[in-house]
Design a protein around this nucleic acid. Structure first.
Lengths: 215, 215
DNA sequence: ACGCTAACGCACGCCGCTGTCCGCCTCGCT
DNA sequence: AGCGAGGCGGACAGCGGCGTGCGTTAGCGT
């Protein structure tokens, strides 16, 4: 998954690259990806030019920085899909996803305000959504998930979860945990649920582009 | 509520002031309050200096611009509180609040990322929360609201609602409407609800201060 | 050990947003 | 109608973030 190169980087360069990614992950997790590039450089103990040399655009940096998060994301849905009890798997996915986002503010932002270019993200996102859709289908069949649930509801909940901001990181995951529990409560099939209002399309598979801007 | 003046403004000045507020409301509603002051001025057909003369700081502008929204907010909770059926009133409050926020992105931001100075906001916010708390108490008593609900859950839901961003305004309210319905589903008392994880304090009554910055 | 070259960091120019100063305009009073 | 004060807008300086060119340093192969 590391890039193939016409010639590998020099040892110090590779070291810096790693330090940059670490710094980026750390700062993105806490402050979101609105932080200036220079701040990332500062934290990495590196000059701005070096940062820009490795990652010419912020988008590239973000993409690289959250590669492992995307793996985690895939892991979560795969695990959920493998669960013999589809409803339990579904709940696990919701919970884990929310926690993942709670622990890393930047990841949420990266996943949500879709990068125009980061097709890699789009692909993985699509994969995760299809998996959740399948899981939801089974959970409905098992009569545990409310019948009027639609896939967009997951996106809705994840977006909503991203709106939760708390000062301390621990409180953040705590809040997200409770929110996830509420969401699951809402999704649960029940005799006396009132019908939900119609959905509005949320995630056109790769069209919106807010602005060209990234952060 | 309008400011008392040593001498009233001139007619044209007052006209401009109104135009500025209209422009601010319009642009804040759509784009949030990250928009530059100059943009507000442009839309108002006014030079930047004029804007700054009327509203020396962005915070004052925002506070004035959302005064009526705050009234609406109060109206919503009062109406809910007046409802003979507390659960119905509670649901109405949730729905209306979500819709209010869906229709105006800036208002959400204004209410959430609390302004250090805008004590007026804090007071009204406190009022609304106390009212909702009372409403919740009654709804619990009536057996319609789940017993483990806490006031912070409302804040949680409102914050979450603010995380929902969609391109078109109509889709925005539509999405928020569905989200509100889900939230209500989650809050509804039910025989087979699993207990919620513990809450984390969300809204220390007036302490946090993110940054001094406003937009 | 030596040199070639990749990599580094300083420093620069650019741009957008903020907030303010000054000369001209116009409302409103007489 | 005329005058004066208050209001208006164009212009200006400061700041912070972005992205880049250039001289210097240090890895790595011989």
């Amino acid at each position: 998954m590391t890039d193939r190169l016409p010639h590998a980087l020099r040892s110090d360069a590779l070291d810096n690259r790693e330090r940059i990614l670490d710094a980026a992950r750390a700062v993105f997790a806490v402050d979101g990806l609105d932080v200036p590039m220079r701040e990332v450089a500062r934290r990495a103990g590196v000059a701005p030019a070096t940062l820009y040399r490795r990652f010419p655009t912020k988008e590239m940096l973000v993409t690289e920085a959250f590669a492992e998060q995307m793996y985690a994301c895939r892991g979560v849905v795969d695990e959920g899909l493998a669960d013999p009890d589809p409803w339990h798997g579904f709940c696990q996915v919701i919970e884990k996803m929310c926690e993942l986002h709670a622990r890393d503010r930047g990841f949420t932002a990266a996943l949500m305000s879709t990068f125009p270019k980061a097709v890699d993200f789009e692909a993985r996102r699509e994969y995760a959504l299809r998996a959740i859709d399948e899981l939801a289908r089974r959970a409905k069949e098992a009569g545990r998930l409310r019948p009027d649930f639609v896939l967009d509801d997951v996106i809705l909940v994840l977006m909503a979860n991203s709106g939760i901001h708390v000062t301390s990181p621990t409180a953040q995951v705590s809040a997200s945990r409770r929110f996830a529990a509420l969401a699951i409560s809402a999704f649960q099939a029940s005799p006396d649920v009132s019908p939900l209002p119609p959905v509005a399309r949320l995630a056109p598979p790769a069209s919106v582009s807010r602005r060209g801007q990234v952060g």
